[in-house]
Nucleic acid binder design. Structure first.
Length: 523
RNA sequence: GGGCCGAUAGCUCAGUCGGUAGAGCAACGGACUUUUAAUCCGUGGGUCGACGGUUCGACUCCGUCUCGGCUCACCA
């Protein structure tokens, strides 16, 4: 019988008492005229003291969640929070006086309202003796009874598991959390505007794909009953976006979710948000220029300046960003002799000298990139473009005109993380088919992340794709960077976690409701 | 997957070298008509993550498990 806490039972009883008195504890007949911040902005300079309120003063109709109540018997301050609340102004207080509100209404307020409830209040503004802007309440209404009590008003929610599982409670209490997601929303809308201003069209391509291509990752697999076939959640939209470029759309972008069935960490969530954009008649060099402008303007849009603080470092988005080839990075950043970076034996020797274990079966291309990731990546704090990747590990990239062993590709690193990957697109269908076949061979040899062949994509290229450059940017990582968060879970509303085990019959009785938990023999 | 750490009231935490637990906030009753984490007096609230073992006795010790955090590995 302890399924419902004492605190909740008391609140349920208060709602029942309201119903018995003909009142609705979940009313929806209150209209708001101003957010709490609107009130502050429109009245702050002019608010009179309580005894000087003009008869005809503006009446504000506000609503919000009750964060705290200071009850002084025949008067009370109620502190409200709404969508306009910020860390600078976390609550706005309204003042209830028994003589003004009326005895019945005031007694109802005291009998009905708890912290956490959502209420509406109407009245003129005034300034208290201590100088705080407040509303003198002439009408007060409980709009939504909260059955569950709020977390500690001083400490808020701190347990990360609870914060992520009950993001709603986290957002009620944590104005800094709201701010993170406001910045994230701003990032997304800025990028959309930025690309649309340059003639890009936003498109949506399949998330359920018969061939999960466009990247090297393990996909989630599902089953389509009607067609009787397996389908995969996309690991990237790349191949579909390029089909649209073949179709003549020339500048397209998609900003949406990808899914990868791989490990979770502070930097990886099974579903994550990726921007991909493609521009015909452009090269990866054009995208380098575009990316510098996009990111520095984005940073200014978010912070008002082109720098951001991350993990104790000031990251500057002032163009031009640093730029190295993979080999140059190994020389300049890891201190490997240039002569060693040109051969597999040289790379192996350099790795051995530094105590880095490399796969003895790995090719020159794989070893080169592996060593870059091991020795250089984490050191790239300021935005840095790394170019000239090996063709072998870039099956969708255009080979360099000067040297077909390399491709016209860059990755962008900031604060030690890869945030973008871009290249001039391979648009020769014969070459693309050959590269796919190499990948098929690699898969047969045990590389389960080798790219699967996509025959329809080859057919699309056979119609002719204009010379094109394309880029992917990890939006979650950009959001981490611009909000100073060290975990991807802090910038995703509902990060994936193992499902909670609920006891059957949670809130109110319903004894034989749940029990649907599989009673399996531990896996 | 490995290592380390954690799980005690609604929330934030303390605690018991083994004798079934405390504080603050929240709640409940009372006082208080300008408070600012309001204040003052009083009260209730816990299967101490789960299961097993040792023991006269386990919240505490041991084992297993669950969930989470950090970290390493993996992962463009």
């Amino acid at each position: 019988m302890e399924e419902t806490s004492e605190l909740m039972r008391i609140r349920l009883a208060k709602a029942e008492a309201m119903r018995a008195a003909g009142q609705n504890p979940f009313a929806n007949d209150f209209r708001v005229s101003h957010t709490l911040e609107d009130v502050r902005l429109s009245a702050d300079a002019t608010a009179p003291d309580m005894n000087s309120i003009d008869e005809g003063a503006v009446r504000y109709r506000v609503a919000g969640r009750v964060l705290a109540v200071n009850d002084m018997g025949k008067a009370a301050f109620v502190r409200l929070r709404d969508r306009s609340s910020t860390e600078a102004n976390p609550v706005f207080q309204v003042y209830l006086k028994k003589d003004l509100l009326g005895e019945d209404a005031y007694d109802q307020f005291k009998a009905q309202v708890d912290q956490g409830d959502i209420v509406g209040a109407v009245g003129p503004v005034f300034r208290t003796r201590r100088g705080e802007l407040s509303i003198l309440v002439e009408r007060f209404q409980l709009l939504t009874k909260a059955y569950r009590p709020l977390p500690d008003k001083w400490h808020g929610l701190t347990d990360k598991e609870t914060r992520f599982r009950q993001r709603y409670a986290d957002l009620i209490m944590g104005l800094d959390v709201r701010e993170v997601f406001r910045i994230r929303a701003k990032i997304v809308s800025f990028i959309r505007r930025f690309l649309e201003d340059r003639g890009y069209m936003e498109v949506e391509t399949p998330m359920l794909q018969a061939v999960a291509g466009g990247a090297a990752a393990r996909p989630f697999e599902t089953w389509h009953n009607a067609l009787g076939i397996p389908l995969y959640l996309r690991i990237a939209p790349e191949l579909y976006l390029k089909r649209l470029v073949v179709g003549g759309l020339e500048r397209v972008y998609e900003l949406n979710r990808n899914f990868r069935n791989e490990g979770m960490s502070q930097k990886h969530n099974p579903e994550f948000t990726m921007l991909e954009f493609y521009q015909a008649y452009a090269t990866y060099e054009d995208l380098i220029a575009l990316t510098q402008v996009m990111l520095s303007e984005l940073c200014v849009a978010v912070h008002g300046r082109d720098t951001t603080e991350y993990a104790g470092h000031t990251i500057s988005f002032a163009a031009p960003f640093a730029r190295y080839t993979v080999r140059e990075a190994l020389t300049t950043i890891a201190g490997i002799d240039e002569s060693q970076t040109g051969t597999l034996d040289g790379l192996r020797a350099a790795a051995a000298e530094r105590g880095v274990h490399v796969d003895p079966k790995a090719s020159y291309a794989k070893t080169l990139v592996f060593l870059f990731e091991e020795l250089c990546e984490k050191k790239l704090l300021q935005p840095t473009f790394i170019t000239r990747y090996p063709a072998e590990i870039s099956p969708l990239s255009r080979k360099s005109d000067e040297d077909p062993e390399w491709v016209d590709r860059f990755e962008l690193f900031i604060a030690g993380n890869e945030v973008a990957n871009a290249f001039s697109e391979l648009n020769d269908p014969v070459d693309q088919k050959a590269r796919f076949e190499d990948q098929v061979a690699a898969r047969a040899a045990g590389d389960d992340e080798a790219h699967p062949i996509d025959h329809d994509y080859i057919r699309a290229l056979e119609y002719g794709m204009p010379p094109t450059a394309g880029q992917g940017i990890g939006i979650d990582r950009i959001a981490m960077l611009l909000t100073g968060r060290d975990s991807i879970r802090e910038v995703i509303f509902f990060p994936h976690m193992r499902p909670e085990q609920f006891q059957s019959g949670t809130a109110d009785g319903a004894p034989d409701s749940g029990t649907s938990g599989p009673t399996d023999d531990q896996g």
